[in-house]
């Protein structure tokens, strides 16, 4: 049968052919979360071995480099030893890597045209962004757990509640960096956005005092404006027993607002009808 014949018979048949009569329910789905979408996104995360390994291996390695000094086990920082102090810092770094990376993955999906394709479906953009953040937080939790396990094996000790609180705060606080990742993911067109953000995060970790103590010099003053500074202070507070300064809270809230508004601005632009 030639193509022309196919066309002709098809046209003839169309006069009589009836569409299936059972009308599908066309009302758009409600609810912010979509379990199937979340499950597939988690599966994609597991499949992305390079990111998972990088995020789960780098922070424990840094911990071993900076924190595996036998002497640290016997130095106290208040409610725990120095090993524990370095452990929670690296847990925060790991969670930051995970959430920034998860947020920034929108850049790859933009480049592949997936976000545009999604606009041709009833999926709500808010569901998309929330799902990306949730998946990033799952990887962040894994990073915190791995650093915690390595830390405890290496002799991190402290009041039980203090350790748990610090690790929990490291995980929760990293949501600020999910916003940072989203902002950058919408801002930077590059497919290799993490190659830019990886070094940036390391720099922020250094400048905010996650890798080495800040001391009392000019760097300590600069550090107060760095996005990692406030989160680090809050994360360590249960362990050191020091009260959280107003400056640290201002730092976290300020950067959360900046990243959140930035992400929302770029997100709206991305989904706007122009």
């Amino acid at each position: 049968m030639t193509t022309t014949e196919t066309a002709t018979t098809a046209t003839a048949a169309r006069g009589t052919a009836q569409r299936p009569t059972a009308a599908p329910d066309r009302t758009p789905r409600t609810g912010l979360l979509n379990g199937r979408f979340l499950a597939v996104e988690l599966r994609r995360l597991l499949r992305n071995r390079r990111t998972v390994i990088f995020t789960l291996v780098m922070p424990p390695v840094f911990f071993l480099i900076f924190g595996a000094n036998a002497g640290y086990r016997h130095q106290s920082v208040g409610h725990g030893n120095v090993t524990a102090f370095i452990m929670v810092s690296m847990a925060l770094y790991g969670a930051m890597l995970a959430t920034t990376g998860g947020g920034a993955s929108v850049s790859v999906e933009r480049a592949q045209g997936w976000t545009r394709q999604l606009r041709l479906t009833p999926l709500r953009p808010a569901t998309y962004v929330t799902t990306k953040v949730l998946v990033a937080m799952v990887l962040g939790l894994a990073a915190v757990v791995v650093v915690g396990a390595v830390g405890l094996a290496e002799g991190a000790t402290g009041q039980g509640g203090a350790l748990v609180w610090s690790l929990l705060l490291a995980w929760v606080g990293s949501v600020v960096f999910a916003a940072f990742g989203l902002f950058m993911g919408y801002l930077l067109p590059a497919e290799n956005v993490m190659q830019i953000l990886g070094p940036v995060l390391a720099l922020l970790a250094f400048a905010g005092g996650l890798f080495v103590p800040l001391g009392d010099g000019v760097f300590a003053q600069i550090a107060k404006a760095v996005p990692t500074y406030g989160v680090a202070q809050i994360v360590r507070a249960p362990l050191t027993g020091e009260s959280v300064t107003g400056w640290a809270v201002l730092n976290v809230v300020g950067w959360a607002v900046v990243f959140g508004l930035g992400a929302a601005w770029r997100f709206r632009r991305d989904t706007a009808r122009v």
Binding site: P24, D25, R26, T27, P28, R29, N34, G35, R36, F37, V40, L118, T121, P122, L123
Partner: peptide
């Protein structure tokens, strides 16, 4: 599968 999940039916 994932695209199908965006629709109610």
């Amino acid at each position: 599968e994932v695209t199908a999940s965006f629709f109610r039916s």
